[in-house]
Computed example of a mutant assay.
Amino acid sequence: MTPPRRSAVRSAASATGGTDAPRLDVVDPRGLVDLGADLLGPHDSRELERYVDADLTDRDLEGASFAECVFEAPRLGSARLRGARLVESVLSDSFAPELAAARSTWRDVRVERPRWGSAELFDAELRSVRIVGGKIDFLNLRGARLTDVVVEGCSIGELDLGGAETMRVAFVDCRIGTLDVTRASLAHTDLRTTEFAGVDGFEGLRGATIDHLQLSLLAPTMAAHLGVVVD
């Protein structure tokens, strides 16, 4: 497997005030073989392959491993990816009403323009991952571990980071409906350029960076949560 190029990619929200920006490696798989996805199955180990318009609806890919692979416009409806591994790979224009990827591993991965309904990535591990654009109705990262992750220009209806551990994570120019950080452990997590309508588990925001406007918008809800009367 070709070692990833180590030139770091900085998030659009530059680090200030002691908040470290994510450090991302360039993901650019080359020398790929174009294959059909008909024979993919659980616990497969694939490397240096490209799949175009692959229909993986209802496919059992539990424990499968993909290294330096590219998936272009895959259909992932009800695909079972529990415990799967994606390393130095690209996933573009993917469609999944339900994405079942609990306890999966994503390392040096670029996800472009996902259209996901319910994305179950609880207890997953994401390291050096960039998600760009797209729309996700419900992103369940409860109990997940995120290190050097950028989510940019993405619309997320509900983001569940309950119990998650994050380090150098940035949400850049995103729109989030409800953000749940109950019992989360956030370190160097940048939310400054992102809009969110509501936050559950305010205590879990410890370690995150927000801007003054976000603080003013959250103030009434925070006061009510703390039982503070503002008169």
Rank of each mutant, 00 (worst) to 15 (best):
R206L: 09
W116F: 14
D123W: 05
G77A: 00
P97G: 06
F202M: 12
E62F: 03
L161P: 09
W106Q: 03
G201S: 14
A101R: 00
L141H: 01
E203N: 13
R192S: 11
L76R: 00
L126A: 04
R206N: 12
I136Y: 04
D190G: 01
E112C: 12
V111R: 06
A124H: 01
S118E: 11
A144G: 03
V181W: 10
R130K: 09
L86G: 03
F66C: 07
D137R: 13
R175N: 15
R192D: 04
D180S: 14
A79F: 05
G177P: 03
E152L: 09
R206Q: 09
V111W: 06
R145L: 07
G117D: 10
V87N: 12
E88F: 04
A144M: 06
A164F: 07
H188W: 12
V70Q: 13
G198P: 13
G134I: 10
H188C: 10
E98H: 07
G153W: 08
P74E: 04
S89R: 02
D148P: 07
V111G: 00
E158G: 04
C154W: 12
A184S: 11
P74S: 10
A119L: 02
D123V: 05
D123R: 09
L99I: 07
D60N: 14
A102Y: 05
S185P: 05
A73D: 05
V151Q: 11
R59L: 07
L141C: 08
F71W: 04
V111T: 02
R175Y: 14
A67M: 10
F122Q: 14
R75A: 00
G117M: 08
T193N: 14
S155Y: 11
G117I: 08
L146D: 12
